[in-house]
Amino acid sequence: MSTTTINTQKVNFNVFRFNADEDYLPYYEDYSMDVTSEEVVLDILNRIKWDHDGSFSYRRSCRHGICGTCAIKVNGKVTLACKESMTDMIEVFGNDLVIEPLSKKRAIKDLIIDKADFWEKHEQVTPYLDTEIDENPTAENIVTPAQADTLDEADLCIQCGACHYACPVVEISDAFMGPAAFAAAYRFEADVRDDNESRLTDVNQMGSGVWDCVKCFECADACPKEINPIEKIGKLHNMLFQSGKAESNIATRHAVGFEKSIRKNGVLDEGSLVLYSELAGVVKHVPVALKMFSKGKIVPPWGIIKSDNLDEIQKLVKSSSTAKF
């Protein structure tokens, strides 16, 4: 392959450097290189190591988007270094790129991080098929294509951690399980062969439970395998309600409160929703509510303008409901 016919351009790389054994603080090193349109981000990491500084450290193994070790951040975007094309990066961010580890506070050496929290959380969701195996089966154990489809590709996860370290709640709260652990929980909950009775309840009670997700969809954009972890979190929510395992708490009442409000008004009654979700806890919202009220930001229940043709909405709520609480 001749590189002379391939487009090249100059790119400045601002690279995170840190050695936990020697450095008190991380620092950034600049490298300027001619980059060809054929290269992926991992090629650049290799060239930094081979041509500039042999001590530069990062993880990689398969170079095929399978092992999941090479996830890093480029200008804040989580990415699998071996899959991300430089052309795309330049198109989105221009010619000044910042290369950083998935999580700066977990950096050990340069782009290598301590991923222990990821693995610990993953392990907690019983991430394997939990079932009695018949040692002497007399027939094949068949999973139909339709049954396999319910996994919704959650089984494609390569545990790269991109979603986990893109999640703003993981960043702030050690108690939150994170999108990858939840996606794994869903993967086995949805599997017809699995008989685990407690995983769903466990997942709901573990750490800060399944309800603290802020629904930012960072994990959806982060995942190189397009697993859409937040969608799986939504499915876990649905499963909790369908199985009757959802306990009454602020989050579940908040979700159910929408149905109540829609049934009554078509639209939401924001004030009553907070009241129903919080119960006695509502007092803590009073100071802000008073301020909002004084600015004309709170409509009392009797002031709510209901949807036109409300009877249609009520009919649909009756005929289309699939969950119970």
């Binding site: 939504g234 979700a255 949807s307 699939t322 609480f325």
Partner: peptide, 18 residues
């Protein structure tokens, strides 16, 4: 004016089909 609430991604958690 006939529209209902979109569910704000919370009704979706409770009852996706609805």
């Amino acid at each position: 004016t006939e529209a209902s609430c979109c569910g704000a991604s919370h009704l979706q958690d409770y009852d996706d089909f609805l």
